[in-house]
Nucleic acid binder design. Structure first.
Length: 266
DNA sequence: ACCTAAACCTGGGCGC
DNA sequence: TGCGCCCAGGTTTAGG
């Protein structure tokens, strides 16, 4: 599932590949996955940016693309397989002869042509919280103390903290030694610090591994990430706690699969 | 304020 | 082998 490390991996790869390229056309194969005007010709790409799990491709004209991969989206550059693949939803043709493919089995995600991309980026920034390495410990503490919601629910709330999804929420709670069920406001200052360090650490590991390909995620070159080989607790039904060896518990929290050790996470 | 569920979709895994 | 069912979880929305 594309969370911050996955989307950032794609962003870095795309930035390297398509900045300076010119778009010569857009082919929409599935209307559901596309929105906006489709008169995208002679648009020079000057930037590839990310806010939380949202991606933005900026043109010199001030227009751009707003993209969200949701559950099963992929953005792949210059890969013949996607030319005829059944779930290729949108194709961006480039002047160099290469193409950028938006592929998505479940069609939750989208590519949207935006007339004023700078304003769109601001709009998304304003609706989302800060990112894990940008939020200060004081700001994070204040947000947690304001609510009695379960701490895992808060970690998944993009308007409070941007970029954390179910995989990294599960793993960082284990690294921090905090139960996903704790009311956010019950965390002591030291625990909030631990929590933030753990989120950053786990996301850093995810980034280093090129993201998690347990499910359908592949990077911009069509390659798997490796973080699924390093999962701490995520997805480990009847698995063992990596710290104490006890069997992990499984629950639904905020409607999401939740794996944790009720001995090590208090 | 908090919580849950449904909706958007499809493929894969499971039980029978 | 095959059919039907459930499940995965990012985001939005609706309702208790």
């Amino acid at each position: 599932v594309p969370e911050l490390p996955e989307v950032e991996t794609v962003r870095r790869q795309l930035a390297k590949e398509i900045i300076g390229e010119e778009i010569v056309g857009i082919e929409v194969r599935q209307e559901k996955c596309f929105a906006g005007k489709r008169n995208v010709v002679k648009e020079e790409i000057v930037g590839v940016n990310r806010v939380g799990k949202y991606l933005f491709v900026e043109f010199v004209s001030g227009r751009g693309l707003a993209i969200h991969l949701k559950m099963t989206g992929r953005l792949v550059i210059d890969n013949k397989w996607y030319e005829t693949a059944g779930h290729t939803r949108v194709v961006v043709r480039l002047a160099s002869g290469r193409s950028l493919y938006y592929w998505d089995t479940r069609m939750f995600g989208y590519v949207r042509v935006v007339e004023r991309i700078g304003e769109e980026i601001e709009r998304v920034k304003n609706k989302l919280g800060s990112e894990p390495w940008k939020i200060g410990e004081g700001e994070f503490l204040a947000k947690l103390q304001k609510t009695s919601r379960k701490v895992k629910d808060v970690l998944l709330d993009q308007s409070l903290l941007a970029g954390v999804g179910n995989i990294y929420a599960n793993d960082s709670l284990h690294v921090a030694g905090i139960s996903p069920l704790r009311p956010a406001r019950s965390l002591r200052v030291s625990e909030v610090g631990k929590m933030l360090v753990a989120i950053r650490e786990v996301m850093e590991r995810g980034l280093k591994a090129g993201g998690a390909s347990d499910n359908s995620y592949l990077d911009a070159y069509g390659k798997k990430g490796r973080y699924q080989d390093e999962f701490v607790v995520y997805g480990k039904t009847r698995g063992q706690c990596p710290s104490c060896g006890r069997e992990l518990k499984y629950l639904k929290v905020s409607g999401r699969g939740t794996w944790y050790c009720d001995y090590c996470q208090t």
